[in-house]
Amino acid sequence: MAASFHFELVSPERLLISEDVDAVLVPGSEGEFEVLAGHAPFLSTLRPGLMRVRGGSKPDRQIFVRGGFADTGPDGLTVLAEEAIPVEEIDRELIASQIADAEDDVKDAKDEATRDDAERHLEHLREVQRALGH
C-alpha cells in the first residue's frame, strides 16, 4: 500500500471529493503530471481533460475537468475545477456542445493570440472526446 495523501476536488457548486488517495493524474496546461504523497508545492492551471484518481474509498476513477487549477501543498492536493463530472455521468452531448462552442470561438477570434488559445482549447476537448471512445 503506497503512502496516501489528502485530495480535494472542488467545483464552484460543491465539494465533490475530499478523501485520502494514493495517486492523482492531473491534466495540467503544460502537460499531465501525477501527484503522489509528498509532492513538492506546485500550482498549475488545468486544461480540459480526464483526471485519474487511484486509491481512496472507491476503485479507480476518471473525472472530466475543465478550467481551473491544481494546487499541491503540504496538506495535499486541491483541484479547483470550473466543471468536474465523473466519466460515468458525462453527457456525450455536453462535450459535443462544448466542442461546437469552441469551434465558434476559433471562428470569432479577432487576433492571433485569442485564436491560438481557442484552438488549443478545442484540441483538448477533441482529445477528451477521443478518450471517451466516440
Binding site: S29, E30, A40, P41, F42, L43, T45, F69, G73, D75
Partner: peptide
C-alpha cells in the same frame, strides 16, 4: 503562514500567466 512552513512553491505556467487566468 503555510508558505513559510513549506518549501518554495512552483508555478506552471508563470505566476503572471496564472494570475491573468485566475
Amino acid at each position: 503562514a503555510s508558505d513559510e512552513a513549506g518549501a518554495v512553491r512552483e508555478y506552471e505556467p508563470e505566476e503572471s500567466e496564472i494570475l491573468a487566468d485566475l
